[in-house]
Design a protein around this nucleic acid. Structure first.
Lengths: 192, 192
DNA sequence: GCCAGTGATGGGACTTGGTCTCATCGACCC
DNA sequence: GGGTCGATGAGACCAAGTCCCATCACTGGC
C-alpha cells in the first residue's frame, strides 16, 4: 500500500508551511498536514518528534557553524572567529535560493508563541554549541561565553536584514551583513 | 462544595515542584498535581495557562527589572544601569529565603527539555523588555541590544553562582555576584 | 431569617498532540 | 516463487488543554 514517494519529510515541511500561512499554526492539524502531503499522522511523527519541529528540519546549521568555528584561521579575537564562521554559513547555507523560504518561515514563526518558544530553545542550544567550539580552540571559558552571546546577536541582526524585503538594494549576502553587524556592535563599545 | 482555601496557585506550584522532583516532570500528570493540592484539573488551568507555567508563576521579575532600569542613576554606561537594576532585583526578589526554592526549581528545569524551552522563551522576552527599558532611557538602539544581551549573560552567571551549593562560603547576595560577574565580563575585553 | 447574586470550584464532554503496536505493501534478492 | 526488509497505514490509547454548565459557600439586602 501507499507506494514510496521521494522526500517525505520535505513534502511534509512544505505542506506545513503552506497550511500555517493560510490558516495559522494553531488552526492546522497534524492530520491535515499529513493528508496535504499525501501521508498520514503516523508518518508525520516518524519524521518529526513533534508538530513544531516540522519547521526546524535541518539541524545542519549548528553543525556548519561549529565546523566554521573549528576551521577558522587564527585571527585576532574570538569574535572574528565567529564572524568567519558566519561567513562560511552564508556561503554554504543561507544562500540566495533559500531566502524566500526563510522569509515565509520566519513570518510564521514570529506569529506563533509556541514556535517562538522552540526557536528560543534552538538559539540557546546553538549558543552552547558555539561556546564548546570556542572552548576547543582554547578560548578562555568566560570569553567564549561573551563571544558566543554576541555572536548570536550578530547572527540575529544579520539574519533579519538578510530576510528583510524592505530595502530593494538588499542584495548583500549573509556573510557581508554579519561582518557589518559585527563592526557596528563593536562600535557601540558597550563593554566600556 | 469544596470550600475556599487560601492561595490555590501557590499550593499548586508547591505540589507540582514536589511531584516533579519525585517522579520527574513527564511522569507527573496535571490531575495528580491538582489532587495533591486538594484541587482539580479545572482549577489548575484556571490559574495556569499550561502545565509548564506552574513553575514560572510570578511575572514579577520582569517588572522589577524594568523598574530598576528606569530608576537607575545616570551612571557611566548602559551596562552599569543594568548592573544597578540587577542589584535592585537582588534586594527585592532574589532574597536569601528564596534561595532553596530557586535551587530546587532550577534542578527540575535543567532536567526537562520542555521546561528549558519555556525558560528560553522567558529569557528572550525578558531581554526584549530590557531593550525597551534602555530605549526609554535614550540609549541608542543597537547599544541597548548589546547591553541587554550582555546583561542577560551576567544575570545567568550570577544566578548560577547564587544558587550553587558547591561553595560553602557562598553567602554573597545576588547583586554582589552580578557586579562581580559584570566586571569579569568586562575584563575579557571580548569586543576588541 | 430568607433570598438572590457572585465568585471560586468541580465535573465531564470534547479536540488534538503524541506514543505504541501491529498489519500491510512494495521492492529486492536468492 | 518465497522470504526479508523498509516505509507506510490503521487504530487504540493517554495526557494536555478547552469549554460549558452545575454546584457550593459566602455576602448583602429585605
Amino acid at each position: 500500500m501507499a507506494r514510496w514517494q521521494p522526500d517525505a519529510p520535505g513534502r511534509l515541511a512544505a505542506a506545513a508551511l503552506d497550511l500555517f500561512e493560510e490558516h495559522g499554526y494553531e488552526n492546522t492539524t497534524v492530520i491535515e498536514i499529513a493528508e496535504h502531503a499525501g501521508l498520514t499522522k503516523s508518518t508525520f511523527f516518524r519524521y518529526f518528534p513533534d508538530k513544531r519541529e516540522v519547521l526546524f528540519g535541518g539541524g545542519t546549521v549548528t553543525g556548519l557553524l561549529v565546523e566554521g568555528i573549528a576551521s577558522a584561521p587564527s585571527t585576532a579575537g574570538p569574535l572574528d572567529v565567529v564572524a568567519d564562521a558566519l561567513d562560511t554559513l552564508g556561503r554554504t547555507f543561507f544562500t540566495a535560493d533559500r531566502r524566500e523560504f526563510s522569509r515565509r518561515r520566519q513570518a510564521v514563526l514570529n506569529a506563533t508563541t509556541e514556535l517562538r518558544e522552540r526557536e528560543a530553545l534552538k538559539r540557546i542550544d546553538l549558543t552552547a554549541s558555539m561556546i564548546e567550539a570556542l572552548d576547543r580552540r582554547g578560548v578562555p571559558s568566560l570569553t567564549a561565553r561573551v563571544a558566543a552571546q554576541l555572536g548570536a546577536l550578530v547572527w540575529e541582526i544579520a539574519y533579519d536584514q538578510w530576510i528583510d524585503t524592505g530595502s530593494p538594494d538588499n542584495t548583500d549576502d549573509f556573510g557581508t551583513l554579519a561582518r557589518r553587524a559585527l563592526a557596528d556592535v563593536r562600535a557601540t563599545g558597550a563593554l566600556r
